[in-house]
Write a protein that binds this DNA or RNA. Structure first.
Length: 485
RNA sequence: GGCCCCAUAGUCUAGCGGUUAGGACGUCGCCCUCUCACGGCGAAAACAAGGGUUCAAGUCCCUUUGGGGUCACCA
């Protein structure tokens, strides 16, 4: 394979739908390492085409989290660049123009099918156990004139890609070679949604082309939609980028890493006292090796040594123990001054203490009582052995209590904000749904969150602890209870 | 279920036809030591299975098994 004469340009394209994900940092790391190794450009693009899932604070958290681990980008919404705008919601007109071009060439078509009809089609396919599940191309036969007339009249519709009816599509993956897909496995993918926003497939391809991305480095979960992208490049008559699909980070049970089973927010690792350089180094160990037996290396060393043939394709399990070991190495390397600075930048910061003090001022008589009384504000996981017997709800089995906690973990994740008032409302509905007295439910939560029977107001405490630590403790307690059952 | 990817200890990995299969986390033991931790030394622990190809297979091919991903107007 000849190397492209074009300067290397790569990108990550996170979607601002929640907390900054370790998977985002993982892919950012490989994009960054590859780009820097070749003196190329690393672009950050925000894929915010789904307004229903967008979270207001998410974009800024992504910026902050990536900068925290030590990665920087050359172009992006916050730093600008010659290929902007770098937020897809600000590029609607560009997508529309490109879709119109495809419709005009009859490489794409307008589809007026209702959601009900699509659901019916899918249900039928499932009922007769069809090997292929997908759109039945009902609107593909519409005359262009008629479709345009209906669209002009304001009829609600989407635009779909007219995929070839027969043949194969080959994806040249630089990490695994040629991967072939039969087109009969490929749906007539929606390109433009009825709200006028592009789908991922369209926006991604159009932007990667216009931003002159040369190498697409993304997670393996994308590989089965890559033939759709290849078809789109073909429809537009554009050159494809070089595809690289990295293995997926895994939970302990080997499934794709998920917040249900593993702390997945970069903010969790930050709050749990992981040093950014340790986290970044650890991610570099996932699916990549230095070349000799080195396991501890800086980002600059990784950049210098970077090579695709050092990538292994088995999905690596994200192992907290090994991350902690690596963190210890980095921690022990800090001077006392640096360690103090790290602590002051963490939970011993003025800002954090200012959140705690209002909760405990009335509860202390002397300064020396503060630290013993608030220990759980400075801890990661708690030790429940002293309160294990009380970790219960009357007339509910340990397994039932565990289940109840996990339900709350999910509810809390779905929440937008993280303030005491909202948390209390959530807590009350949750207790109500389970039929638990709030008195019992909230004592349980207090024990879970603080490992104590006495604490400042529960929901204020949770608010200060933060979403990730709170949820992690609930998960840990649920696990403990499940083991007891 | 269809399609696709993957496969060395519990976990992360080295290995790119000839190795006593190497390193690391974790686990266990010993040493250091006023305790604990650090540190040092050591141990147990792996080529998923079956067929080929080859003088020779963890390494190449096939099948099976197992794991994963994906099949949305989410990315």
């Amino acid at each position: 394979m000849s190397s492209s004469p074009r300067p290397v340009r790569v990108r990550i394209a996170p979607s601002p739908t929640g907390d900054p994900h370790v998977g985002t940092a993982y892919m950012a790391l490989f994009n960054y390492a590859f780009a820097r190794h070749h003196g190329g450009t690393f672009v950050l693009r925000i894929e915010d085409t789904d307004q229903s899932r967008a979270r207001a604070d998410s974009e800024q958290m992504i910026f902050d989290a990536l900068r925290w681990v030590g990665l920087t980008w050359d172009e992006g919404p916050d730093v600008g660049g010659p290929y902007g705008p770098y937020r897809q919601s600000e590029r609607k007109e560009i997508y529309r123009r490109h879709v119109d071009e495809l419709v005009g060439k009859q490489l794409a078509y307008r589809c007026f099918c209702t959601a009900d009809r699509l659901a019916q089609v899918r249900a039928d396919q499932q009922a007769r156990k069809a090997s292929f599940l997908g759109y039945d191309r009902h609107c593909r036969g519409l005359e262009l004139d008629e479709a345009e007339r209906r669209a002009a009249a304001g009829e609600v519709h989407v635009v779909r890609l007219a995929t070839p009816l027969e043949g194969k599509v080959a994806v040249e993956d630089r990490l695994r070679g040629t991967v072939e897909f039969d087109v009969n496995q490929i749906d007539d993918q929606v390109l433009l949604k009825s709200d006028g926003m592009p789908t991922y497939h369209l926006a991604n391809v159009v932007d990667d082309h216009l931003m002159e991305i040369t190498h697409v480095i993304r997670a393996e979960e994308w590989i089965s939609s890559t033939p759709k992208h290849v078809l789109l490049y073909r429809a537009f008559g554009w050159d494809q980028p070089a595809w690289h699909h990295m293995p997926l980070l895994r939970n302990v049970d080997k499934s794709k890493i998920s917040k249900r089973k593993n702390p997945v927010s970069i903010n969790y690792y930050r709050d749990a006292g992981i040093l950014p350089q340790a986290l970044l180094n650890f991610l570099g160990l996932m699916g990549w090796s230095f070349g000799d037996d080195r396991e501890k290396f800086t980002i600059d060393e990784m950049v210098a040594a970077f090579s695709w043939d050092r990538v292994s394709l088995g999905g690596p399990v994200f192992d907290l123990d090994k991350l902690t070991w690596l963190n210890e190495k980095y921690l022990h390397e800090l001077s006392y001054e640096q360690l103090v600075d790290a602590l002051l930048g963490w939970r011993l910061s003025r800002a954090h203490l200012l959140k705690i003090v209002p909760l405990v001022r009335e509860r202390i008589k002397r300064l020396d009582e503060l630290i013993p009384l608030t220990e759980y504000f400075f801890s990661g996981d708690l030790d429940y052995t002293a309160v294990a017997a009380e970790l219960a709800v009357p007339d509910v089995s340990p397994a039932g209590v565990a289940q109840g906690l996990l339900a709350l973990v999910d509810k809390l994740d779905a929440r937008d904000g993280w303030d005491a008032k909202g948390l209390e409302e959530e807590g009350r509905t949750w207790a109500g749904e389970l039929g638990w007295k709030t008195k019992h439910a909230f004592m349980l939560l207090r024990l879970v969150v603080t490992a104590r029977k006495a604490s400042p107001p529960l929901f204020d405490t949770m608010a200060v602890l933060g979403k990730e630590v709170t949820r992690r403790r609930m998960r840990q307690a649920a696990e403990l209870l499940a083991r007891r059952a």
